[in-house]
Structures are given as C-alpha cells and as structure tokens.
Design a protein around this nucleic acid. Structure first.
Lengths: 247, 247
DNA sequence: GGCATTTTCGTATTTTTTACAAATATAAAC
DNA sequence: GTTTATATTTGTAAAAAATACGAAAATGCC
C-alpha cells in the first residue's frame, strides 16, 4: 500500500505533478441529509428538525448527520432519520450529492441527499438524539436553514417532481386502496398543475399497474368512488421499458 | 467546536447512545469516476484506462481518482479526467454516488459518478499521470474492471438512456450543424430501438429547439439532407416545463 | 441522360387527446 | 318515499397526433 501518490498541481501548472501523502485524502467526512416530503390534503410539507448541537445550533435543518466509517450509505440514511426523528420504514431514494468545499464549518464534508414522500398523518416524528424539535414546514414558508440546506431542498423539490413521474415514490402517501381522485390530487399538488377529471381517469385506465378493484368508497354522501390499488409486480415491466407518466 | 458527539450504536441497541470522537468521522475519502461514453457510427463505447498504480494495478478501470480536500466535486471531475486522459472541455453530469463500505481496499472511499457523451473521433485521449493506457471499449465486451466499476458502468448506461431523453447531453456528439438522420441514428444506438424515418422527422419538426437551417449537405451522392442546429436558448423553456422526448 | 441512393413529402388510416356534457350512485334532508 | 346535493363515472364529437406506407425529389457518378 503506497503512502503517497503523484497528483497534479490542480490547475496551476498542467503536466506538472507533485506528491502529497495519501493520508491527506483520508481526512474528509460525509453525511446524509433526508428530505422527507409530507403530503396531506393537497398540501406538501417537508420535515425539518431544530438542531440541538453545533454547528448551526438552534437552526432549522434537514434531518442529517455524519455517516459512520463502517456504514453503507443507504443504511446510514435509514439510521440517521431514525436517530433524529424516530421514524422508520420510510423508503428513501438517493438523488444528489452536494460537495462545495466550504459547506460545512468543521471540515470537508460532502453530503448525499435522499428523498421520500409520505402521508403526513401516517407518521409522528419525535425529536431524538441531538434533534431538539421536529416540525413539518409548508414548502411555501421555509425558515432560514443550516448549512446549504435551502439549496438542497430546492434541488430535491425538482427531483421529487421528476421522480414522481417515473417511479412509484408515491405509494407510501396513499392508502393501499385509493380513489383516482386522491391519486389525481396528489399529482396536481406535486406538479403544481391541474388535470381534467374524466381524461385523467382514461389515462389511468390504460396503465396496467393501477388495478381497479371490485370495491368502492363507503359513507360518502355522493356517488362512491371505485378503489384502485398499485400492482408492484406489473409495474416492474413498465419500469424495464423506461416508463414515464405522460400527464 | 465539539470534539465528540452522541451517536447511536448503529442497529445494535436503539435508543442507546454513546460518544465517539468526531475525528473518527474525518478519516474517509471520496473519489470521482468519469464515465465517458464515446459514440461513432452507430456504436457506443466507453473510455477506460489501465491503472498504473495500486490498488488494482494493471486493471482496466473508469478514469477516476481521489478528490482533493480543497476541491469542489464538479471541478474535481474535470481535473481528474484531464489528469488521466488529457481530455478537457467535456461537460459531465453527476449521476449517482456509490458508497459500499468495502468498495475500496485502502479505506472508506465513496465515489461520485459523472457521465458525458462525446463523438469518438473528436477527441484523442492520452494516458497521463498514473494511467498507463487509455482505450475505448465497446459496451458489448467490457473486461474485468477495478473496484466496483462494472456496477457503476451498468448503472451509468441506464442513466445515459434516461438523461438523453430530457437533457441535451447529446450536443457534444453531433457537429454544430447536423442531419436528422444522424440525430436519429444516435438515439437509436443509445436507446437500442429503431424509429420510422418519416415519422421521426415529423416529431422533430414539432420541437422548437431543433432549428432547421437554410443549408444542406454537400458532396453526397444522393439527395442532400437539410441541416439542423440545437438552439439552447429555446431549449431552456422546454426544460422549465419538464420536457422529455416521447420517442 | 440514366442510375443508385437517400432524403423529403404526402396521405390515408388508425389511434389518442381534448373538451365538455350527461348519466349515475350514494347520503342526507325533507 | 321523494328530492336534493355532491362527486363519480360514462359517453361522445371534434381535433390532434401517431402510424405505415409509398411516391417524388435532389444529388453524384457513370
């Protein structure tokens, strides 16, 4: 195992290399930040924590922390979300890595952002470990955030909008059996545009992984809506062909 | 600056925290791997280097190296590609971060993958620094690769197929003025399916950011093709609306 | 000029989208 | 019971787009 290697003098003099000890490279850390979007009744929120530790003590921030040296990234995301908010069983997806040199005051820390989408009412985050407080914040009024978390959040909103069209990231938001109206409203909220009810429904009926059930709503004072469910097996075939909703 | 912080005993005993020195977190490194796809005459290749240093000396690998502690990720990608292959001015896009614990024998190293797409004939990579050799490898026969680079490559092929539909990642492949036949062949190669010539053309003509010029091919022994060019300004509006080709 | 070649245009058919209206199913009010 | 309010569901006519072809056009070369 070499203890040093040739590296370029970064953009000072091309073709001119000098040696720096390889140990110098192993002085960085990385973190995971979890962007948990909460949906409820046509409103989209994001779960923030109030930091109870330096740096940025008392600031609102995305739930995030340093990854252990012996921990896989996806595992770290789960563990960190659970550490700070007591939440578990929330499937998250990696979306982007943010790596500006001075984004963290304690040293070089790059952060990998993960997103998830849940029904607000289904879960009750509880602050834990160094998180003083957890709170759902409407996307329309986000306070000043720690680190570069505002930038991360903005990017993740875009990623959510893209991902919701091609991946079943929305399955945790809806009950197992759901109405097409609920499905439509969810997409309208995330994508910020409206669809014609009848035509939206026609498109859905052409999509095999949304299965119409022989069951309908109860106790509604209007014509009850037929219930649908997501067929993940059928979805696999769509995914293989590069499926994207064409709303 | 705190020298330690409470952390959970990762998945051993929930709700039980102990302290480990914060320095322990700052013993990792990260690298960038560049997946440069080269296109030429209906064939897609990827640029690999032969490693001239441990670990994995003499193995074929994606051009990649450790990121300096004082270096932004996007800058590192450019610098590293240039260090190893002498290439510059190749716009790359971050696609995914790979972070399995034991993916690197020298310690904890996560790697951020970047992709780009270029015309093979336009550039001449030259091995430099610790790269012994550079070579374009057909995607159909990839040798055994260093680290987890095979897995990274496979994932990046999928990302390329997705990105080519929504982002002008293809602009560096085609000359400034190009024929629709060339454009079509490029997409057929990347997506691995074929399109009807006349109908493909009709779709393109409905897309405003592909501008038809008052100019056509010269010195071809058949009816010359009209040339088109990419209008990046017009594309911005498409992008804002979440444009995706619907081939 | 005729030939080979590939682009380009045209068109008839089918399919999908769109916009909107009418019919339907339920609970609750009368 | 009958009516009413409400939202779901179906239907449909017009417009638009996709599809599958084939014919016409423009070039270099013989």
């Amino acid at each position: 195992m070499p203890i040093s290697r040739k590296v370029s003098k970064a953009r000072i003099e091309q073709d001119d290399f000098y040696s720096i000890p390889i140990d110098e490279f192993f002085k960085s850390a990385f973190s995971v930040d979890c962007v948990i979007f909460g949906y409820h009744e046509k409103e989209l929120k994001v779960l923030l924590i109030q930091r109870g530790t330096d740096p940025y003590e008392n600031f609102w921030a995305l739930p995030g922390d340093l990854v252990y040296p012996f921990e896989d990234l996806d595992d770290a995301a789960k563990r960190i979300l659970n550490d700070l908010t007591s939440l578990s069983d929330i499937p998250m997806r990696q979306v982007h890595t943010f790596g500006k040199v001075n984004r963290h005051p304690l040293g070089r820390v790059i952060t990998i952002a993960y997103i998830a989408l849940v029904e607000l009412q289904d879960i009750t985050p509880l602050p834990s470990n160094w998180a003083k407080e957890t709170k759902w914040h409407s996307l329309k009024k986000i306070p000043k955030l720690a680190f570069d978390h505002k930038e991360i959040l903005n990017e993740c909103v875009k990623e959510l909008q893209e991902k919701v069209m091609s991946e079943p990231i929305w399955t945790k938001v809806l009950p197992e059996k759901f109405t097409l109206t609920a499905f439509q409203e969810l997409f309208e909220t995330i994508l910020q545009r409206e669809f014609d009810k009848g035509n939206f429904r026609k498109k859905i009926n052409g999509v095999k992984f949304l299965k119409r059930l022989d069951e309908s709503q109860k106790n509604v004072r209007h014509r009850p809506s037929v219930l649908y469910k997501f067929d993940s097996k059928a979805f696999q075939q769509y995914k293989a062909k590069g499926f994207v909703f064409d709303f």
